[in-house]
């Protein structure tokens, strides 16, 4: 079994078979992280570079741990300044890194399509660690792994994705991935946060939170990016009033519905604290599964013919 591309750029490019392969592989890798010695020699001698143009703690740490638990050498390059400010172009940076013969480069960048630009230029594999408002495929895969481990299967599940859909790469990746695996997806948020023609991606759209949550099996909340985007809504207070996942709203969902959030959480804005810490929350499982998913991808992309 293999992936058709040397790169993981987005969920849109993955077939259902490839998604299953990744999830199944991740299921096996999950066990490694439960051992006393959380390390296997699988990728000994491989070099993985985490090239992060955006601040990130959890994704970078997750990729780093995934690489280290597979015995690969992981290097982190973090820079908050964009390549435009820095003076060196992204392509020059990519070529410089390529000259050091890495096997896989994970890139996070604030510009949509930056990983595609690099992937076209270099021989090694590129994994998109989140690009602009485009995609965050490893987040979607870990979300899907979390749902599958709890619900057994993805097929036929009702999933609500709630928040700033227009500016959420997590939402975009999950829309592609979940619909492909047979989930019915409803997106919800204030109207200015719903991107144009999103229904053409095969999802239902509502601006009413109660309607979005009612009878869902999974409620996926998104992080509101105060720091990143000009406000598409009048105030945080108003957002929280209409779109915060609280006990009353969650009660509308199916019994045992999963509460998810890619983190970091703005408590009280996107999700009430007692819900985030509650019985139905799988937010920390998402983090745990993230390592397994990233181990699976590093494994599947490593070696073989370039």
């Amino acid at each position: 079994m293999k992936l058709h591309s040397k790169d993981i750029l987005g969920m849109k490019e993955l077939t259902p078979g490839e998604i299953l392969l990744i999830l199944d592989t991740a299921d096996s890798f999950a066990e490694v992280s439960t051992r006393d010695i959380k390390k296997v020699p699988t990728l000994r001698g491989k070099t993985i570079i985490n090239l992060f143009y955006e601040a990130s703690t959890r994704t970078r740490t997750s990729f780093e741990l995934a690489a280290k638990r597979l015995s690969a050498d992981a290097i982190n390059i973090s820079t908050s300044t964009s390549s435009v400010v820095k003076g060196e172009t992204l392509i020059d940076t990519a070529r410089t890194l390529e000259a050091m013969n890495p096997d896989i480069v994970v890139i996070r960048h604030s510009a949509s399509g930056a990983p595609h630009l690099i992937a076209r230029m270099v021989r090694h594999s590129v994994i998109n660690g989140g690009d602009g408002f485009h995609e965050h495929p490893t987040q979607a895969l870990l979300d899907m792994l979390t749902i599958r481990r709890r619900k057994g299967s993805l097929k036929g599940l009702e999933v609500a994705i709630i928040g700033d859909i227009a500016h959420s790469r997590v939402a975009h990746s999950n829309i592609h991935g979940l619909t492909r695996m047979g989930c019915r997806v409803t997106v919800c948020g204030p109207a200015p946060m719903i991107p144009r023609d999103v229904e053409k991606l095969g999802v239902s759209v509502t601006c009413n939170m109660e309607e979005a949550v009612r009878n869902r099996d999974v409620v996926m909340m998104l992080r509101i990016q105060f720091e990143r985007h000009r406000a598409s809504f009048p105030s945080i207070r108003e957002y929280a009033k209409f779109y915060c996942l609280n006990e009353e709203r969650l009660a509308l969902a199916n019994p045992g519905a999963l509460v998810m959030h890619p983190g970091p959480i703005n408590r009280g804005t996107e999700i009430a604290p007692d819900i985030a810490d509650g019985m139905q929350s799988v937010i920390l499982e998402q983090v745990t599964n993230g390592i397994a998913v990233r181990m699976a991808l590093l494994y599947l992309l490593s070696g073989g013919s370039p």
Binding site: K12, S112, G113, D131, G132, F133, H134, E135, A166, R169, H172, P195, R196, D197, V198, K200, L201
Partner: peptide, 15 residues
């Protein structure tokens, strides 16, 4: 251009 493709590509649209 703003539309399905800009939504998919995560690029700010020009309506």
């Amino acid at each position: 251009n703003e539309g399905r493709v800009s939504t998919e590509l995560g690029l700010q649209g020009i309506p």
